[in-house]
Design a protein around this nucleic acid. Sequence first.
DNA 1: CAGTGGTCTAGACCACGCG
DNA 2: GCGTGGTCTAGACCACTGT
Lengths: 245, 245
Amino acid sequence: MSATSRHRGIADDLRKRITTGCFGPGERLPSETDLASHYRVSTSTLRNALALLQREGLVEKIHGRGNFVRHPLRKIMYVGGWGTLDPWTAAETALRVTVRTAAVAARGHLTSMLSVPPDTPLTEFTCVSHERDAPHSLARIYVPSDLALPGLRQDSDLAGRTLTRFAVLAPTPSEIRETVSARLPTPDEASALQIHPGTAVLAVTRIATDNATRVVEAALLVFPGDRVDAVFTTHHVTDERPTQR
Amino acid sequence: MSATSRHRGIADDLRKRITTGCFGPGERLPSETDLASHYRVSTSTLRNALALLQREGLVEKIHGRGNFVRHPLRKIMYVGGWGTLDPWTAAETALRVTVRTAAVAARGHLTSMLSVPPDTPLTEFTCVSHERDAPHSLARIYVPSDLALPGLRQDSDLAGRTLTRFAVLAPTPSEIRETVSARLPTPDEASALQIHPGTAVLAVTRIATDNATRVVEAALLVFPGDRVDAVFTTHHVTDERPTQR
DNA sequence: CAGTGGTCTAGACCACGCG
DNA sequence: GCGTGGTCTAGACCACTGT
């Protein structure tokens, strides 16, 4: 009766039971030993089945507590380019962004990203934004220190539209270049975003340059893939030709 | 001597041995039983270790043949917006894009994506692009049939810049809206892209509209996350304000 | 066919969360 | 302390790939 392997069949059954409301969102599933004996399989086989549902985002395992049906997730939008504030984001509430500021010296990747000589003084902003306890973004932003706004000082809390727009610079950039990639989180990112390794993250590297092609900001953004999409809107203005590096 | 758990320590050791060139790219690792006895662990523990390296993209398992060190991957760029042809892409060679054309009727998601009434005749383009046997994109593109170019007929092969640009329409759109998300592949996608489930994919939904806000193309693109990045370049033209839906 | 990875078992012991 | 998931073992058998 199983599809191809035992654990897949069990996963299919559990998935049906979850999606048909037999187990509601937030509810705890029976313990793995109970489920294993119910399906007449060993615990490892049952754990393989649960691993599938976990990767699908249907189930969340919490060590010492149990397996829980995940709440249906509302997707949040990261708006690319100049991030024109959309009503959706504006209406968003219950957001908290914690920012930590530090002075660092350009090293390694940072020098090439910012096109600055090594040891150039930079200001680093480390941001984690939460929405109701669940983190939904992790950002490290680097700005040449002479361009950093003095407004944002030490650790502080922000709210509102800053969640997806982290432009913290004085001169408006003329070009924004965003590189988006999908990958699995590093252990650090997984714990910071409170996601399990094995769930994909959306990584955005944003580099903003001013009119004189000076890099005024480099941002490394990481979002949990199951909660955040990135949106880019491009208009065809007459025959404007964006230059490629 | 292990970091936190046995299999992590083994993964660390193998990772070091791979990155230091002890095992070269494309080379086969010792069999799992051999490695298990070498590290004095059970096979399942060793398989857990290999699973870590697999998720990192360092190792590829092939059933019946062995575990192989993956070749370092050159990243390919998906260029957002109007995809200004960059020298990098132009110089790219050895590409093959297979296209399959079909006539379908708008249903479900398609009707809302294309903003057309149900059962509107659509032309579906299914594209798989390869680079030296390795697929690197999977695309399903939907165009209202009255807009589809008659140039592309039945199954055909293309090459060149079509790889990341699938614009197959007559009227030039005035707005392109691209939604990017990171997730794990569906079983279908995993087999089509020849990637293992558990490796992230970059999914791009691209909707192009003409001046009259008519949707002229909806594209569902899927890329293996370890091979493809998406790039979006935005310019600040005076005070152009892209509208958000 | 021999050798490989894939699945599964029936346990054992450890680490975590909570009362 | 108790129940939970996390890790691990020492096997067995199945499925795939090559010769």
